[in-house]
Simulated scan of single mutants.
Amino acid sequence: MTTQRVLITAGASGIGLGLARRFAERGDRVAICDADGDAVARVQSEHPEFIARQADVTNEAQMAAFFDRVETEWGGVDVVCANAGTGGPAGRIEDLEYDAWAACINVNLNGTFLTCRRAARMMRRQGSGLILLTTSTAGLFGYPLRSPYAAAKWGLVGLTKTLAMELGPVGVRVNAIAPGAVEGDRMERVLANESAASGRPVEDLRQQYVKGVSLRTWVNTDDLADMALFLSSSAASKISGQILAVDGHTETLVP
């Protein structure tokens, strides 16, 4: 398979770092950005072959500088993983602060807009490429106590479908991966926030997530990377505009 040029946002930890490592193992060139400067430095130390830059996806100037560097060094990009996101606040909508709502929407939706806008410009000129968004099963179901997160992730579903229509005629594919509950620190923070908002013990919530999935299991970053690598391969050349859940089949997110 031809070596690909892969750009990943929020690529210094969690799902993004898992994607970066798997693309690199396949032999691809990898560029990552992340708002966490310390995490970026660690990744650069472990993977000096990566392009690694501190950049907040909601900062237009920082994202422009990151894409400029990638375009200057590589001349283009083949895969852009718009992966950055945040869990946002937990609570009934009447109890949420506007600033917390807006911050969640800003990272999950507006940050993805900035990433996809620049990716679309580059790929339209090339006449090829894959934009891969990270949405969530929260973008497929109602999600009590997590309205800003659900609203943002549903927005990404609409963005995926629309960009696939806009860019398909020039040979660019756009898809989204919808993870379920992913093992790791981020999900532990989500459980803690939901526990504080609902008054239910963390372990009860953990079991509720498991019971709401047909396979009765969470997923891990390798499960998501397997899907990303498939979608970026020639075997997926006719797959576009799709929301592909990697979640063990979520039946409900309602407690």
Rank of each mutant, 00 (worst) to 15 (best):
F113D: 03
R124Q: 14
D204R: 06
R206I: 12
V174Y: 01
V172E: 07
A164Y: 02
N175E: 09
R146Y: 08
L229I: 12
D226T: 15
D99L: 13
T135W: 01
L145I: 12
A100S: 11
N193R: 15
P144E: 13
S198P: 06
L156V: 12
N193L: 14
L132I: 03
Q207F: 11
V219W: 03
T134Q: 01
A150R: 05
K211H: 14
A192H: 08
L109W: 07
R146P: 11
G91S: 00
G129L: 09
A103E: 09
D226W: 12
L132K: 04
D226G: 11
S128P: 06
N106D: 15
N220I: 04
V190F: 03
S195C: 02
L167G: 00
F113E: 04
Y149N: 02
L156C: 04
Q207Y: 07
G142V: 15
T115S: 14
V172L: 01
P89T: 02
G184R: 10
K161Y: 13
S214D: 08
R186S: 15
A228S: 07
L114V: 09
R92I: 13
A100K: 10
I105A: 06
T115N: 03
G158S: 07
L163P: 00
L163E: 05
L205W: 03
G171E: 09
A100W: 00
A151E: 02
E94W: 11
A120P: 04
R118P: 14
M123I: 11
A152D: 05
L156N: 10
V190S: 12
D95C: 08
L132H: 05
L133H: 08
P169N: 02
P89F: 03
R121K: 14
A197I: 07
A151G: 05
G87E: 08
R125C: 11
G158C: 07
L191H: 05
I177V: 12
A176K: 03
I105V: 15
A181T: 14
A120W: 12
L191R: 06
S147D: 07
I177M: 02
A178Y: 07
L145P: 06
P144L: 15
E203T: 14
V174M: 05
S128W: 12
R125I: 14
V172M: 03
M123V: 05
A102I: 12
V190P: 03
T221D: 13
F141H: 15
G171W: 05
M187H: 14
A90S: 14
V157W: 09
S198V: 05
A150K: 04
G91Q: 00
P144F: 06
